[in-house]
Amino acid sequence: MWAYVVRRLFYAIPVLLGVTLITFLLFNVVGGDPARSMAGKNAKEADLEKIREQYGLDGSLPEQYGQFLKEVVTFDSGRSFRTKQRVGAMIAEGAGPSLALALPAFFVASLLGIALGLFCAYFRGSLADVLVRTASVAAMSISSLAYVILGQYLLAYRWRLFPIYGFEWSLVGTVFLVLPAMIWILLSVGTDVRFYRAVMLEEMRTDYVRTAAAKGLRTRTILFRHVLRNSLIPVITRLVLSIPFLFLGSLLLESFFGIPGLGALTVNAVTNNDWPVLKAVVVIGAMLYVFGVLVSDILYAAVDPRVRLK
């Protein structure tokens, strides 16, 4: 298995190189002169020179790309345009609050999604199934921004059930996370239920399920031992590939509820024209994704004996 992991890590190299190349092309070539977009339209040439020197933008494009690669490899992405902090430190600081919101919310949402999916697939065509499906389609037809704005306005601002805004690293601080986590769950359960229902339904139509039912196994055994286990592969894919999104948090929720995570960091970077931060977040997101794909491939072999890692 270790040989497999090492080989997969080698395969990841061209992809990660591609990510850095695309990010570099986007921000340093297509994006125009970064110094100018930072300093504004009417900046003097001398100021531009100074900014270029400061951020290493005075070299040729291959030189700049080399420098960018060096930054990526050493996890040192220079300094933010706006706050002048080191980007690496900003990202390390942001990961904690993002995870504090994302992990519990993701956990509950996934459990709820899988449970409802299994439920709907088993009772397919019944009133409960129709109701859950209708509700999830309806929930998906509303913009996530509307959920966040209305949720914050009604539950926190108007009815004062939750604090409006804030974050604190303590037990008391968890009250700040309840409302955003609830909105997160509401936002993701709709799509999750539909996905898991389709997966489970696929599995329930197979022959071995009919055989199991015919030989008189209990429904519970069929559902949890047979159907759930055999549908684990798509479930794991979906769960593991959400990992980068957990670290990146939710752009909307974090910026609305004042959680100083990576999502809020990204939003601030966009509004402040702070492209070193944005570049670093893109590259780190891609690394996490590549890592997630590797983990899910290893997990396949763990849950399904038919999968061999070679």
Binding site: V30, W275, G285, A286
Partner: peptide, 19 residues
């Protein structure tokens, strides 16, 4: 492998900020 929201954001950011 770039999370789609970030890629979309980066694309539109770059396009709108390039004077």
């Amino acid at each position: 492998s770039i999370p789609y929201l970030l890629l979309m954001l980066a694309l539109s950011f770059v396009f709108q900020k390039n004077l």
